[in-house]
């Protein structure tokens, strides 16, 4: 426990605010009727997740989270929502048994089980640390120990870009000339 008006107390207060932002964003992302609002909720949730990464001593990963998820993935989903023009979700009744209370129960069971596991285990800290996990160390191991995976992920991204272009090249007009 720390005093609320010390530096640690204020940072703890900001942490609580970030957690609330994350959870509210996630709830908006799964519950809103219109998909464009769901994307906005996803962006809010990712801003909160970036804050969590900042609290985990990794400002670089927090920056990448903002840049890639909020800046790129959410904008791409917005483009897809505009191109595909989805109707608002229809009323319940046509859906399968999984929509509604059963899906909520499944999600809650997962959350409850995982957090019970996290709370009951006695986690043991490391005996020693080989480095301090700064950005310099991340860059060094990315270019020495993980260079193969680093190159492979470039290839994966290149293939994803080309594949996306090939699949979606013709926009929203149907093929075959209807």
């Amino acid at each position: 426990m720390v005093s609320l008006f010390s530096a640690e107390g204020l940072s703890s207060l900001v942490f609580v605010f970030i957690v609330i932002t994350t959870v509210i964003g996630a709830v908006i992302a799964t519950h809103s009727e219109r998909l464009i609002r769901a994307v906005t909720g996803l962006a809010i949730c990712f801003i909160g997740v970036a804050g969590l990464y900042y609290y985990l001593n990794s400002p670089f990963v927090a920056l990448m989270e903002m840049l890639i998820y909020v800046g790129a993935v959410c904008v791409t989903i917005v483009f897809a929502v505009m191109l595909a023009d989805p109707n608002p979700e229809r009323e319940a009744g046509k859906g399968s048994v999984f929509t509604g209370p059963l899906s909520f129960a499944l999600g809650f069971i997962l959350f409850w089980g995982l957090s019970a596991l996290a709370l009951k285990t006695a986690w043991q800290g490391p005996a020693t640390r080989v480095n301090d996990g700064s950005l310099e160390e991340v860059g060094k191991s990315l270019l020495t120990h993980y260079s193969m995976a680093f190159e492979l992920i470039s290839v994966v991204l290149l293939l994803a870009i080309i594949g996306a272009l090939v699949l979606a090249r013709q926009g929203r007009t149907p093929t075959g000339g209807e």
């Binding site: 996630a26 999600g107 997962l110 959350f111």
Partner: peptide, 16 residues
């Protein structure tokens, strides 16, 4: 775990 549970709930419940 909370984010995972919410995500799983949305994955099962969403129709689009």
């Amino acid at each position: 775990a909370l984010l995972f549970g919410i995500g799983f709930y949305g994955l099962v419940q969403r129709r689009t």
